[in-house]
Amino acid sequence: MSDITYGKVATFNTHPDTSIPMESPLSVAFNTGSVPAATSGSRVLFKEQAFLGHLILRGGAIVLDEAVRKVLGISLPGQPLGLALDASGECSVQWLSPDEWLVIVPGGEELDVEQRLRDALGDAHYAIVDVSGGQTLVELSGEKARELLMKSTPYDVHPEAFPVGKGVTTVFAKANLILRRPTEERWELVLRRSFADYLYRWILDAGAEYAIGVEE
């Protein structure tokens, strides 16, 4: 059974036991669109981190904080627009709204993390939703990455306004995405699956003057 009834909520293991080819939200773009190679002249680098585990966590910060620390070893970002990573940088928790956080974990671990959070949260009122198939994470780096963002979003991405450890849901071209800054050099975009092709085309166009390169 893929469904496991957890108390009164059904969790779901989305992954097959056998090896089945997966297609990320950017597969169509990579298969059918232009994929400029990264070179030493690329001043913006684009890299998809496909197939990660994405969970939406809903609940009050006071309710969730202890469980998140116990399961992920990360303190829940209590401040709006906060982004917290664990020491390895593989797990992150991002504030999305006053009672909503995005948890990203290595691919395939999402169900285990969800179940351990549910164990830790007991009867509290909260919700955890697996959205791993619905979005993907893209890393932007390179000396002109911020220039590319400035062309694409009305959000202020100046380092004074957008320090490391910040993340926002904002307008990007004519779509929405999550924009975050886990390190000095790297920006991350979380794209919704159905908008991924459009956003990819936009980013390639915006990055053309910086010889944008797509890393495998």
Partner: peptide, 21 residues
């Protein structure tokens, strides 16, 4: 600006889009 041609408006695709094409 660059909001023209295929970037004029977002086109949303399903996971099966390529097969349909």
């Amino acid at each position: 600006g660059r909001h023209c041609r295929e970037l004029f408006d977002p086109e949303r695709y399903t996971a099966l889009h390529q097969w349909h094409v």
